[in-house]
Amino acid sequence: MIVGSSKSLQTDNCQLTTDNYSKMKLTLKIWRQKNAKSAGKFESHQVVAEEHMSFLEMLDVLNEQLISERKEPVAFEHDCREGICGTCSMVINGHPHGLMQGTTTCQLHMRHFKDGETIAIEPFRAQSFPLIKDLVVDRSAFDRIIQAGGYISVNTGQAPDGNAIPIEKDQALDAFNAAACIGCGACVAACPNSSAMLFTSAKVSHLAQTPQGEIEAQRRVLGMVNQMDEEGFGRCSNVTACEAECPKEISVTNIARMNREYLSASLTSDVMK
C-alpha cells in the first residue's frame, strides 16, 4: 500500500546528504559583453561547485550568486541539458564544449576539473556568428544554409511506402552518422578559419546517401556551398579541429564527400550559374 507522500525527490534531507560530495573552489574568467556594439572584457568570479554538478549547473550557481548581489547574470544559451539540442555555445579553456571529447557543455561535469582551478569561458567566436550578449551568439547562418537546399523536396502526402526503396544497412548507418549533427556550431568555433564545412557537409552527406536525397543532390550541394560562402565563413584548410571538437564526433570524411559532390555538380550538372 502506498501511504503518505512524506518522502519525495526534493525533500530537504537531500540537501544534508549531498554534503558528502566534495566541493571545489573555482575562479571563472568569463567574457562579458553587453551587445555586439559595445566592447567586451573578461570578468573574474569565484564560485563554489560540487563535483557532480554539470558545467551549466555550476554557471547557474554563479548566476544565483550574481542575482543575490543584484548584479546582472551571465547570459548563456542552453536548453535540453542532455546533449542533443545544440543550444550551448561556449568555449571552455580554449575548447568548444570543453576538454572532454564527444561531449556537449551540458554533459560536462565538474568532476573533470580540479579544486582551485581557473577556468576561462568565452563565446564561440566567428565573424558569421555575431555576438548577442556575453556568451550568446547568433547562429542563424546555419538555418540559411539549410534553407539553401538542405532538404528533400517532398510535400506531405506524396510519399510512397516506407519500404518501397530498400537502403543498404551500412549506407543508412553512414547517413545516420552524418545526420547526428546537432547544429551547435562548435566546428566553426574550433576551426582556425571559422569554416562551416563540417556542418554543411554533414547535411550534404546525409542526404546524398539516401536514394530519396540523391535525386536533387547536385542542386543541393551547389546551393548550400554557395550560401555557406555568402555567409562569410572561412575556407577549410583541412585542420580537422572541427572533427576533434565536434560533440557528436562527425567525421571529416563528410567534407571529402561534399568536395566530391561539389566538384561533380559544378562540372557535370545542368545548372549554368
Binding site: I152, I165, A172, H206, Q212, G213
Partner: peptide
C-alpha cells in the same frame, strides 16, 4: 513513416 522516409530520415534498417 512513409513521409519521414521520403524526407531522408535515416531510420534503422535490416
Amino acid at each position: 513513416i512513409d513521409q519521414a522516409v521520403a524526407q531522408g530520415v535515416p531510420l534503422a534498417r535490416e
